[in-house]
């Protein structure tokens, strides 16, 4: 089938999408946007988080066809020609990145939190990021990064 959508501000028309494919597969396998990660395919880890029409979703749980006509922003769409989003910059500075596989998902989840709660406390950060798994950091530096980004 054909899926038409806007990804990171660019209109895309994707042919040959199979019915069983997810938005995650569409991004990775058809559009070569590999920043969105596949780590569990059950919506448990948040590594595949993207914005779909302004709402943070696990792209592994969205059928590709559901994105028809939609607007998607992936981690690649957060930085602008080498200028990092404050959340991305804060993740580097705070040491919130280790292996980095979960990082795109965390960056988007933190970005979404700060859109709604500009200066969150620890409890709000923990709740907002509880749908994302990280196996490297123990999360403390991720919390630090969100605080750091909140000031910008």
């Amino acid at each position: 089938m054909r899926v038409s959508l806007t990804v990171n501000g660019v209109d895309r028309v994707v042919d040959g999408v199979e019915e069983h494919e997810s938005l995650l597969h569409l991004l990775r396998e058809h559009l070569d946007l590999f920043g969105t990660k596949n780590a569990c395919e059950q919506g448990e880890c948040g590594s595949c988080s993207v914005y779909l029409d302004g709402v943070l979703v696990c792209s592994c749980l969205v059928a590709a066809g559901q994105a028809e006509g939609g607007t998607v922003t992936t981690v690649e769409g957060l930085s602008d020609d080498g200028i990092l989003d404050p959340v991305q910059q804060a993740f580097i500075e705070a040491g919130a990145v280790q292996c980095g596989f979960c990082t795109p998902g965390f960056v988007l989840a933190a970005h979404d939190l700060l859109r709604h709660v500009p200066d969150p406390d620890d409890a709000q950060i923990r709740e907002a990021l509880s749908g994302n798994l990280c196996r490297c950091t123990g999360y403390q530096k991720i919390i630090d990064a969100v605080h750091r980004a909140a000031g910008r």
Binding site: L33, F34, G35, T36, T74, V75, E76, L78, S79, L84, Q88, Q89, F91, I92, E93, G95, V97, G100, T103, P104, V107
Partner: peptide, 13 residues
Amino acid sequence: PRIDGEPKVTGAF
């Protein structure tokens, strides 16, 4: 800072 920090936060890694 990590030598691979920037590509990891932008999804380029």
